[in-house]
Design a binder for these strands. Structure first.
Lengths: 192, 192
DNA sequence: CAATTCATATACCGATTGGTAAAATAGATG
DNA sequence: CATCTATTTTACCAATCGGTATATGAATTG
């Protein structure tokens, strides 16, 4: 078993369950079956450990989203593709996904928030670029691209989170049909 | 000066700035110009202090939202009213608002999250009741009321948060026009 | 085999954590 | 003034915090 990997998994597990600030390095080490100095040998500091957890997972998400957001003249198609990829990531890497969302909404001055911030901005930039590319279809948007991007991300995130909170099972139970319905609602409103 | 009030303000300030878990009771006391035992005299424990901070502010929001959500047969009107009240609260009590959102997305097992959870559920219930009341207007919704409620809250929250993050000023700069536009987008989609 | 590098553990550091016992002060009441 | 109660302080607690000096075991390399 790869020690480094074991520590990263242990850290994500605990960060996800209790939050970055309320977990001690000692606890992470014990949970991984190693001692504290070993952890420091690999990651240097607690925030260094967090950086590694984030980098490893967030990079994967960013790459997936970059691919999915490639625009070919069909906005609904692209939005559905992006939403699907995003959802599938949230399901496969659910612990990281929920931890990432938590950090997103942490206080700005908080170190843990600072670690995730660049990836959140990148994600927003990717979604924004879809709406910017769709200007020919949608016509003059008067700067509404930003609002669309925010609304789109906000809607999906809140939807996933709320479903996860209200469902009994320990997994995200959302089908592609539900995602399509959500994207449709986003595009055409509630009167349809 | 009311000692109790001073402590509550000091706590909210620091919780908002650095997050509940990364702030020490000592720091809160110093910031309030008193000593630790005085704080414990009033609030018993750190989580007791948090409970008081939340109760005082969240109750206010809940009451406002209950009033604003009273449905009289006009869905757009009600949604605008609710969105406006919500936004005005976010502006007037911005520190608490942002702290509340942060706690909402904290890990489920986290004590601080548990403290805010009932108020979040209540808030959701209030928004949901609007869409349930609007069934006559919207026709059979096939359980989509929940999705509407989630989408509505998610959109507004993310919108406020993003604007706050990208604006330089230390205040939420959103006009009523922008809120109307957001509600309109939510109701009619992006093709309008 | 010897020297060196990599990996892991024991045992410790000062600082801070949430929390409290007990004394001192302040304000009200008889 | 004396008593009582409501506050607030000084001084402390064990436990945990993030982090490290140093020794030791395990591989690798000359």
């Amino acid at each position: 078993m790869d020690t480094r990997e074991t520590i990263l998994n242990s850290a994500l597990e605990l960060f996800y369950t209790k939050g970055y600030d309320s977990v001690g390095v000692q606890e992470i080490a014990e949970n991984a079956g190693i001692t504290k100095p070993t952890l420091y040998y690999y990651f240097g500091s607690k925030i260094g450990l967090l950086d590694n957890v984030i980098e490893r997972n967030a990079t994967k998400l960013i790459d997936l989203m970059k691919d999915a957001s490639f625009y070919q003249g069909d906005l609904p198609l692209t939005l559905n593709k992006v939403a699907t990829v995003y959802l599938e990531f949230a399901i496969e890497y659910r612990k990281f996904y929920f931890f990432m969302i938590a950090l997103t909404y942490h206080a700005k001055e908080n170190d843990a928030h600072k670690a995730i911030e660049p990836y959140i901005r990148e994600l927003y930039r990717i979604i924004l670029s879809i709406f910017e590319s769709a200007e020919k279809e949608l016509g003059n948007m008067n700067g509404r691209q930003q609002k669309f991007a925010m609304g789109f991300i906000g809607t999906i995130n809140y939807y996933i989170l709320f479903l996860a909170e209200t469902s009994d099972a320990d997994e995200v139970a959302i089908t592609n049909d539900q995602i399509f319905a959500l994207v449709h609602q986003f595009m055409h409103g509630i009167y349809s």
